[in-house]
Design a protein around this nucleic acid. Structure first.
Length: 475
RNA sequence: CGGGGCGUAGCGCAGCCUGGUAGCGCGCGUGCUUUGGGAGCACGAGGUCGCGGGUUCGAAUCCCGCCGCCCCGACCA
């Protein structure tokens, strides 16, 4: 089945890619999804890349329960108000109405900090550098596979520190971990910055974000890291005896990234033919399609194909031989393209006669003949080349869709065309922020860490700017 | 919750206005021929027509009620 054109109808294209490439499908309860093996493999690759960086920075995994007593959530006022509309609550269990409703976690700060209160007595107990891989539930009105589902998989890091400085460093360190995974593994360039108070995590003092640009020119928040100050420590009574002999509240951070990243991966690189996966996350890096016309050729080709595939696996490539008996090569080519496999190798009688294989890049479509002996080296080098090339292409696309403006008219125009990110001065007033949102649907995605001196006055009200803001229409 | 639309085979749809015993494409199964860009032919399997009630000799079709889903408006990884 051909895909809908992604320039004409991007949402339809997205939905069909997810379906046809066997990534996921909707399940019975609205907003819930079944993640299928190929889609889950993408998540595993992202998860492993993140987990590796968490461990490298000294974190350990642990696990907290799914259910949280409602009263526990209510202790941090801003936090509970922020999440209350999205709660899924359990009111009945064991055949009776519960004395106290249980909230299915929308995030775990509350139960974790309530527990940390028992674990933290002294400065010697700090820092706590913990992370959990879990599912969470936020009741969604407008679900979309991977991008916004009622239940999703994610990781949430929750750390406790002795000093404010340490906690700020932690929040920035984990933002950097997200940047690395997005850019170096997923080949998805991201901007880093702070959120405005309106877009901040409920209960946070500061929220940092990585923001990516999708091929329909909409922005995607791809990961967030929060400096929580002492808000949760105070609400849940996490105090320690300090080096100075006094009681102090612990300093906190939290940080999360979710299965939404799979959606970002699809939308950052996809094209008219389907997915284009960077080798860093591709479950299959090389697909081999054997070609033959009769039983004699079949035996010859399949034998050689398996031998070559094994030699490529031996150098560390993830190789799959598409030996499905009932499908013709043309179908397999299209199928491999749909699934975004970075490199396709065709091996047929003509190749065998010339001691070569035919190599086709998914990202550019370029086809070349490579001698069998050199193939392992060539294929390995190609993975790096494609990884880099996808990143460069995405970066060029983002640069072509990033504008700097000095007035409200320019802002409006730039949101329409070229779309993407629009940088301009901002006075810091939520009224100006809300006005832009109401009139253009664009929100402030982030405030860059380094304000741009050229940004000029607030593009909305012309008062003095205190920040540069990056506006975009977002998912 | 306000506005618009849709429920018929695994998926996408036609049939409904003008009642007469359910059809098309894709997919699925078997066989033969095919195989370097999404194969062809033949045969075949598969349906409580969203649910309940009513009108009628007869309802996917007409009437009443209900349920569910999708799209557009206020929040969110």
């Amino acid at each position: 089945m051909p895909l809908p054109s992604f320039t004409d109808d991007f949402p339809a294209w997205y939905q069909e890619v997810v379906r046809q490439a066997d990534l996921a499908e909707n399940s019975l309860v609205r907003g819930t999804m079944v993640i299928k093996p190929y889609g889950y493999a993408l998540w595993e690759a992202i998860r492993d890349a993140l987990d590796l960086r968490f461990k490298e920075t000294g974190h350990q995994n642990l696990y907290f329960p799914l259910f949280i007593p409602l009263r526990l959530l209510e202790r941090e006022k801003e936090h509970v108000e922020g999440f209350a509309p999205e709660f899924a609550m359990v009111t009945h269990a064991g055949g009776e109405e519960l004395g106290e409703p249980l909230v299915v976690r929308p995030t775990s700060e509350t139960i974790i900090w309530d527990t940390y209160a028992k674990w933290v007595q002294s400065y010697r107990d700090l820092p706590l550098l913990y992370n959990q891989w879990a599912n969470v539930v936020r009741w969604e009105l407008r679900p979309r596979l991977f991008l916004r589902t009622t239940e999703f998989l994610w990781q949430e890091g929750h750390t406790a520190h002795e000093t404010e400085e340490e906690a700020w460093e932690e929040a920035r360190r984990m933002l950097e971990a997200y940047r690395q995974v997005a850019e170096d593994v997923m080949a998805m360039p991201v901007f880093l910055g702070r959120k405005t108070p309106a877009e901040r995590f409920p209960g946070a003092v500061e929220t940092f974000t990585i923001e990516a640009l999708m091929r329909d020119r909409k922005a995607l928040q791809a990961g967030t890291s929060h400096y929580l100050g002492q808000n949760f420590a105070k609400a849940y009574g996490v105090q320690y005896l300090g080096r100075d002999g006094e009681q102090h509240f612990a300093e906190a951070t939290s940080w999360g990234a979710s299965t939404r990243l799979v959606g970002g991966l699809i939308m950052a690189h996809g094209d008219e033919k389907g997915l284009r996966l960077p080798p860093g996350v591709a479950p299959i890096q090389v697909v081999v399609v054997p070609i033959f016309r009769n039983d004699e050729e079949r035996g010859r080709v399949l034998g050689e194909t398996e031998r070559l595939a094994e030699s490529w696996r031996a150098v560390g490539l993830r190789v799959k031989v598409d030996d499905r008996d009932d499908l013709r090569p043309g179908y397999k080519f299209a199928d491999a393209e749909l699934r975004g496999i970075p490199v396709r190798v065709e091996i047929g009688p003509r190749d065998l006669d010339a001691s070569q294989v035919t190599v086709v890049r998914r990202d550019t479509g370029a086809k070349s003949a490579v001698g069998m002996d050199a193939a392992a080296t060539t294929l390995t080098a190609l993975q790096d080349e494609i990884q880099r090339s996808l990143f460069d292409e995405a970066l060029a696309f983002r640069e072509a869709h990033t504008t700097r403006v000095g007035s409200y008219d320019e802002l409006r125009d730039a949101i329409e065309d070229p779309g993407g990110f629009v940088f301009g001065g901002w006075c810091g007033d939520a009224v100006c922020e809300a006005k832009v949102k109401a009139e253009t649907k664009a929100t402030i995605r982030f405030l860059p860490f380094e304000p741009e001196p050229t940004a000029g006055p607030c593009v909305v009200c012309a008062q003095a700017a205190v920040d540069t803001a990056a506006w975009a229409i977002a998912y």
